[in-house]
Nucleic acid binder design. Sequence first.
DNA 1: AAATAAAATTAACCTAGGTTAATTCTGTCC
DNA 2: GGACAGAATTAACCTAGGTTAATTTTATTT
Lengths: 198, 198
Amino acid sequence: MERAQLANNIFSYFNDLGGEIDWRALTTPLDVHVTEKGQYLFQQGDSAKRLYFLHSGLVRYVSVSDQGKEFTQTFAQAPRIIGSTRAMVTGSPVLFGIQALEDCVISSYDWAEFYQQMRHDNAFLECYLHFLESIFIAKEERESTFVKDSAERRYLNFCQAYPTLKERISQQYIASYIGITPVALSRIRQQLKLSNQG
Amino acid sequence: MERAQLANNIFSYFNDLGGEIDWRALTTPLDVHVTEKGQYLFQQGDSAKRLYFLHSGLVRYVSVSDQGKEFTQTFAQAPRIIGSTRAMVTGSPVLFGIQALEDCVISSYDWAEFYQQMRHDNAFLECYLHFLESIFIAKEERESTFVKDSAERRYLNFCQAYPTLKERISQQYIASYIGITPVALSRIRQQLKLSNQG
DNA sequence: AAATAAAATTAACCTAGGTTAATTCTGTCC
DNA sequence: GGACAGAATTAACCTAGGTTAATTTTATTT
């Protein structure tokens, strides 16, 4: 894909958030990354002060606990902004890695430069604001499902919310997304199968 | 407290998020609410399309599961913006109630009007954007603690992060904030006492 | 198609935290 | 200061999900 084409993907993604953004102020060069299935765009602990955009493919945000257990925070499908708001804003190391679950085309801008150039555009600020609102709402819903629902409910919710993802993602990652072990997920699926047969 | 004084509290809170906001565009009238200890500002399921500001006091965001169990999402201390971003943005009923843990003075603006009047001010957008970034980051950290840490760790984290809150809040609410029962929290405290004595 | 590796299932056992209920402690109201 | 209510503790028992390990299924590679 051409660089100009990639940039256009990003521009129209932002515009679709509800604005008429004037992109002429943007002169920051765009980087292109091709990440193969299984590989990491960046690892937990890295510095990741860039705004990434997933043009094609599928990734997961993985964070690893002190005890070495992997936990999937999010799945993200193209086309979408990806990356760590926290790392971009605070400059601190990322709390999760981004792993490609399928071959991906990803591009990126340096966030500080991007924001410096675009912050004077009202339409841009409004779009970015809507983006932040949407990811906040998603996190809030996720928080609620973790505390209120059983693992079985969380699995059913996932299947209902992401019927297509369910087919593209291996079960171990679904388990790590709903916060249980693959063994427990298998058990739950077994029980569901039995109870559905009546 | 005078209405003008209350409005100034809100203005300077926003300004402190890093901007020079021109508030002259704002003509929306401000409402004043006085909420006594134990009372609710609004209940889960209500429509809450206002931007609330907590001038004094302490509240918790409470959501109740289908099985009738209470869960505390957040504690918020004055001075702070409170309310539901989700309800303001989507217009859907709130997923949590706000309960006063101490007597509170709260004021509010209709969000849609407020935003309509202020959205043309770049400095305002930037400040609100920083606010959204900060609440998103807080949620992300909370998500991570829920999945990675044991209840004991979560309790210790809470005590370290909010040493003063710990004294002001009854244990049952701390338990519901870290996602366990009061009985379990009591057990954990007991174990900590024992292990600290060596 | 055979060989290998990775993923999913199943079973046996274990543990953190839930549940219920009795008991003590801490207010706060008259 | 006595009486009552709500909060916290403790104990006994229960359950969802973790752990380990053996077995089968499914994907990859040659």
